[in-house]
Amino acid sequence: MSTILECKGLSHSYGQKKALDDISFTLESGRITGIFGPNGSGKTTLIKMLAGMIHDDKNAVTICGYPVGAGTRAVVSYSPDRVMYKADKQISDIMDSYEIMFDDFDKNAARQFLDEFGLDEKQHVGELSKGSAAKLQIILTMSRKASLYLLDEPFSGIDPVAAESIIRIMLKSIPDDSSLILTTHQISQVEQIIDEAMFIKDGRLILHEPVEDMRDKNGKSLTDAYLEEFR
């Protein structure tokens, strides 16, 4: 095991409003971590800062030893909480751009996943259902051999069958020595696949614990623990 990510005292404000308040945590390789919290708690801001989409002038986060920036973008594979491709693009075009942008993109792996999960590279993004567009985004994100995967709301607005496919794509492709972080409101969907849960409330990290420990020590599911904290 090695340390993939170190976050020491990360804060961020939008004007007067504190979006993130002194967040510190460490992530080891080979772990799947879920970030949970109500709308507006700071999850997406946190993910965006880890991905380098929001600048952190204090360099509070290092990934594989380097401060977030151009250098870490090569080892971080990020999927935002909305469709990231234009409607008139063909899947094959998007794969071509991934190949140019990311040295670690495995086009053959992506092709196999497209085939396995019922997508065709001749299709245009605009003709895909919401579930298929979500699957495409996860396939391309996971077909990079990255050290850290950041998936912001990978299940939002999609049906349970597509959500199950997305979980399988994740489990099949995450390299043993990488780490994955996801955010979701569909907690029950990820009960079985999360190693560690982080709860965020008003921009503060109020809990960071292995999910199996919650079950073992307190006889509580992740969903129970969440409801107890935020209800």
Binding site: R168, L171, I194
Partner: peptide, 14 residues
């Protein structure tokens, strides 16, 4: 481990 984790849809470490 990986094959069965994918089949069961559980965490590979578990």
């Amino acid at each position: 481990v990986r094959e069965l984790a994918v089949e069961a849809a559980v965490n590979p470490n578990t």
